[in-house]
Amino acid sequence: MTLASRVIPCLDIRDGRVVKGVRFQSLRDAGDPVECAALYQDQGADEIVLLDVSATPEGRGNALETVRRVRATLSIPLTVGGGVRSADDAASLLGAGADKIGVNTAAVRRPALIEEIAERFGSQCAVLAVDAAATGSGGWEVVVESGHTRTGIDVGQWCRKATARGAGEILLTSWDRDGTRDGYDLDLVAAVSGAVTVPVIASGGANNAGHLLEALRAGASAVLVASILHDGDTTVGHLKKALTQGGVVVRP
């Protein structure tokens, strides 16, 4: 037997509500996080990712409460990211019921953050979230601050460096494809999956089960989906059924 490929719904949270945008902008309301998480769990989701996209300290306080409420109903793993700057931030989220912690901008600014979280809570808890934008010369650079800032850092190199520091999983989002429904950036997925030995979660651009299948074949261990679920175009169950028909092992 083998490890099942995972289908992971992602909830972007702002001020206690699920929101969804295109390329991290023009956010619109997509429901209550507890209801969404419970619905996707019932549909067969393998994990849930919550990304706090709140812009304010008050919003962040709400995020802890959201994690608590989601945890109460959720019996599958919960990854929480967004604005994590220290191991103490991670501890607060774990205390509220997160199982894994995603770090992004703060880890780019201060890579030791990855080690601090991995040493205190284990590598399996430290998820490196990377937002990758195509450079136009065939590569990808890391973008931070919700896509506002391009860093010039090569995505593959950053992922290798982060796993050496203890990141146990890569949540790889194509900034160019996020919310566009044009399909995952398969070259990006293949490049990063080949560059690291930890699992890679492909994110950004899914419109149908065919896109999921392509990303898993390109080397991803899991696929993140958001818009197509929030809009009710499909369900996790339908996606997993199609993956099974495509020869992928999923948890039934």
């Binding site: 037997m1 083998t2 490890l3 099942a4 490929s5 995972r6 393998d46 590598s123 399996q124 146990g168 999983e169 030995t197 930890v198 699992p199 261990s221 899991a222 948890r251």
Partner: peptide, 13 residues
């Protein structure tokens, strides 16, 4: 063993 991705993260039988 190193031929698998480590950590093992996910659902297994």
């Amino acid at each position: 063993d190193s031929e698998e991705r480590v950590p093992q993260l996910g659902w297994n039988r």
